[in-house]
Design a protein around this nucleic acid. Structure first.
Length: 195
DNA sequence: TATTGGATCGCC
DNA sequence: GCGATCCAATAG
């Protein structure tokens, strides 16, 4: 494979909804020793600003949410329900808390190893959910705050996506009026979507 | 220090 | 539909 080029920091330093939409079709890559694990992004959710009640950042600047307030182009990784890691990319300028949650991938490279890590064979089941894709790629809390422009995790140009649809975000019933914002973006008709 | 409740998943 | 499992946030 030719040299691999992570998307530049300027990509992440943009309006979060724009970044979210443009992430569809891009390739999320994890380098683990000699192994390369990757998949095309088919589903994401945007979490935007301090007012967004669905966002952890609505709690203010705390130890947990600090990465969301940090510089763009870094990872925000947290543990949910005591067992699953969720992977986000931090967007917009430092001080403005925003991020995009990666929710599902279409597996591309290192499929055999990802099948092993997940304990499933079916390609559709490898990374069709935020907790599943981190397990498939071997992403955990030790990578929280890592720089996505240099390191073991990055996003690069992928393929031209199909039609992109929007819907309300999943699992944020507690967020009042914010739960209805159509800030989930996904490739229409993909076989690799969550749930 | 104690309690509470998840940006989920897989099995019942 | 329900329980697993643990950490951060909040209350006391």
């Amino acid at each position: 494979m030719s040299p691999r080029t992570p998307l530049p920091r300027s990509f992440y330093l943009q309006d979060t909804l724009k970044v979210a939409r443009e992430l569809i079709g891009k390739l999320l890559v994890r380098k683990e020793g000699d192994a390369i694990l990757s998949g095309f992004i088919v589903e994401v959710e945007a979490y935007v600003g301090p007012e967004d009640k669905a966002s952890h950042a609505s709690k203010g600047l705390t130890r947990r949410t600090a990465p969301m307030f940090g510089p763009p182009g870094h990872a925000y990784i947290y543990l949910v329900y005591g067992m699953y890691y969720c992977f986000n990319v931090v967007t917009e300028k430092e001080g403005f808390p925003a991020a995009v949650l990666i929710r599902a991938l279409e597996p591309f490279e290192g499929i055999e190893l990802m099948q092993k890590k997940r304990g499933v064979k079916s390609l559709k089941e490898i990374a069709n959910g935020p907790g599943k894709l981190t397990k498939a790629l071997g992403i955990n809390g030790s990578l929280n705050r890592c720089d996505l422009t240099s390191g073991e995790v990055w996003i690069e140009e992928g393929r031209i996506p199909g039609k992109i649809d929007q819907s309300p975000r999943i699992g944020v019933h507690y967020a009042g009026e914010w739960k209805d914002k159509p800030w989930r973006f996904y490739e229409s008709g993909s076989e690799y979507l969550s749930r």
